[in-house]
Design a protein around this nucleic acid. Structure first.
Length: 255
DNA sequence: AAAGCTTCCAACCGCACAGTT
DNA sequence: TAACTGTGCGGTTGGAAGCTT
């Protein structure tokens, strides 16, 4: 039968969202709530396809999003859930309030996967990797040592405990799961202890963008004319903003 | 200081599925 | 029942930022 594209491609903007576009979308969503995504761009005055709007909203602008690093407990949960659900990121995300499938997917691919490999767990099967002599020589690329992991680097105890946890998760279902969990909790305790010396590492207090800050990102000085890269004095294009640097992000919205 | 490499993440793409006509 | 539409999901990519040499 052949599918039509989700939206007319011609004339629609692609690529990074500008602060102005964000403002329009948030404005619309807050005023009208979630409705037919196809209609959103038109009604909100955006030159985007509905799909793009949905993605931007669910992955970045949604008020209930928690941003920032996953806590140890969240990571553990992600690993647990992944071992049960596989790459069903949306299902996994549904167990982590305020987290998006995209975020978890990214985190898994860029971070957790490596951690698991590092401690000898195959991230696909969650089984132990039994490296051949060959593989062993190929592992540990030189770049890896500079990768700072909360779990392992600089905290051998945490790595030890964590790897112990992972061993048990592999083989121990239901009955002994509690002991596995408690082991992992120990790992977390250790990790937490090491992290507690670093007060900045607290995802519970990761600032989240507030609606009024989007609607008026820079207070009275916000200029709607500075839509894209020209907004340097106010807020840079959103895609250039690193977490925690986003001037619009502070506190938790819609409490 | 700068070149090269790696990491991270926002955003896109295409497919699948459910709902509607 | 088939055709069509809208939405959701997972895989992938591009480019900025950060790190190493």
């Amino acid at each position: 039968m052949g599918r039509k594209p989700c939206c007319e491609k011609a004339g629609l903007k692609k690529g990074p969202w500008t602060a102005e576009e964000d403002r329009k979308l948030v404005n619309f969503m807050l005023n009208h709530g979630k409705c037919c995504w196809r209609a959103v761009p038109k009604l909100a005055g955006l030159l985007r396809c509905g799909k793009s709007c949905r993605l931007r909203w669910t992955n970045y602008l949604r008020p209930d999003l928690r941003r920032g690093l996953l806590s140890e407990a969240e990571e553990k949960l992600v690993i647990d859930l992944h071992s049960q659900l596989g790459n069903r990121w949306s299902k996994i995300a549904s167990h982590l309030p305020g987290r998006t499938d995209n975020e978890i997917k990214n985190l898994w691919n860029s971070h957790i996967k490596k951690k698991l490999r590092k401690i000898g767990i195959d991230p696909l099967t969650h089984m132990h990797i039994i490296p051949s002599a060959n593989e062993q020589t190929h592992q540990q690329p030189k770049q890896q040592r500079r990768h700072v992991d909360a779990w392992s680097d600089g905290d051998e105890k945490a790595e030890e405990a964590t790897s112990k946890y992972c061993c048990e998760v592999d083989k121990v279902p239901e009955a002994e799961e509690k002991s596995a969990v408690s082991t992992s909790d120990r790992a977390l305790d250790i990790a937490d202890a090491s992290l507690s010396s670093c007060p900045e590492f607290c995802t519970d207090e990761v600032p989240i963008i507030q609606p009024h800050e989007i609607l008026n990102p820079c207070g009275s000085s916000f200029s709607s004319s500075s839509s894209s890269s020209s907004s340097a004095s106010c807020s840079p294009p959103v895609h250039q903003q690193k977490l925690g640097e986003d001037p619009r992000i502070s506190g938790v919205w819609m409490t």
